[in-house]
Simulated assay, not measured.
Amino acid sequence: MNTELETALATIPGYTRHARAAAALATHYTRLRNKRLDAGINPVFRSCQELTEQVTAAALSDRLPDELTEHDWGQHWQDVIRHTQEDLLFQALTEATTRAENQRRHLISQGANTALRSLNQQLQQLLAAVRAGRASQQHADTYSRIRQAQRHIFTEAHHSATRPMLNAVGEMADLYEHWPRWTKNGKPGSPEPDQPAPWTRHGSDPDSSTYTPEYLQWATDNRAHLWVPTFPQLQAAAVRDNRLREQQDIHRQNVNNGAAPRERFTTPHHLDLDAFLAEQNDKEPAHV
């Protein structure tokens, strides 16, 4: 797990403690399960067979004690007790491990937006460092880990966002402003052939969460609004981007039909980026 992700998840109340408990239980469960698998046969069943032969022999020789459970049957008896305890412990570990993992997933689902806000703070600190100088490979590596953490949280929380949505407006709030000819073409997130995405032009790959210093420098120089949105912010950004492109298509059709002068499409005021970001910042964060 990368440090950026650890820092973000640590902001979820109770997550670190429950995650540590879930990991410890899983380790002991795996260890005991492997031990039982290596034994080949159920040890309780094997000890029971051996004790059965001992009890039968005692009965045949008229030496069967009146109090069977209090009698010392020797090593076979001790083995039965030990294996039975181990069997009970394994069942308890199985249940406890499942419960702990379910609780961990519940916490990350309920607190995902908190973790995402932490990642966004880390990202803004990184971008400030880039603006103070030049983007380095170390900056790019940190940025890649932040994006890996973002995708990890989305996966863990089982959010419905698609990968193209996450790789587009989940990366850049002002995607339209920097990639206005991005179109769906029947495939979500598929760019027009003559205009590759900004990150592609600078050697980065959102699908694998690998980014270059050149991309970070381009984003800084062009004042791209890189962010790590919460789930509600991501959904709102996707709606804004779709509406902008719909308005652009309408404008283009009107121009082609001669119903409007051949002027450049301008962003409607209600879809302005600054207004959108201000609205998102004013909203109370929501759960997944």
Rank of each mutant, 00 (worst) to 15 (best):
Q91L: 12
Q91R: 10
A92C: 07
A92N: 09
A92P: 06
A92L: 10
L93Q: 09
L93K: 09
T94K: 15
E95I: 13
A96G: 02
A96K: 07
T97H: 05
R99M: 14
A100Q: 07
A100D: 04
A100Y: 06
E101T: 13
N102W: 14
N102G: 04
Q103L: 15
R104Y: 08
R105F: 13
H106W: 13
L107Y: 02
L107T: 04
I108N: 01
I108G: 00
I108Y: 01
S109N: 10
Q110E: 08
Q110W: 04
Q110F: 06
Q110S: 10
A112W: 00
N113D: 02
T114W: 09
T114L: 12
A115E: 00
L116C: 01
L116G: 02
R117G: 05
L119R: 02
L119P: 00
L119E: 00
L119Q: 01
N120G: 02
Q124D: 05
Q124E: 05
Q125C: 11
L126A: 07
L127C: 06
L127G: 03
L127E: 02
A128P: 02
A129P: 06
A129L: 08
A129S: 11
A129M: 10
V130M: 03
V130E: 01
A132C: 08
A132I: 11
R134C: 15
R134T: 15
R134M: 15
A135N: 04
S136T: 15
Q137Y: 10
Q138S: 15
H139A: 07
A140Y: 06
D141L: 12
T142L: 07
Y143K: 04
Y143P: 00
S144R: 10
S144Y: 02
R145G: 01
R145D: 05
R145H: 06
I146E: 00
I146S: 01
R147S: 08
Q148C: 12
Q148N: 09
A149F: 00
A149P: 00
Q150M: 13
R151H: 11
R151Y: 05
H152S: 14
H152A: 12
I153A: 01
F154T: 09
F154P: 02
F154S: 12
T155Q: 15
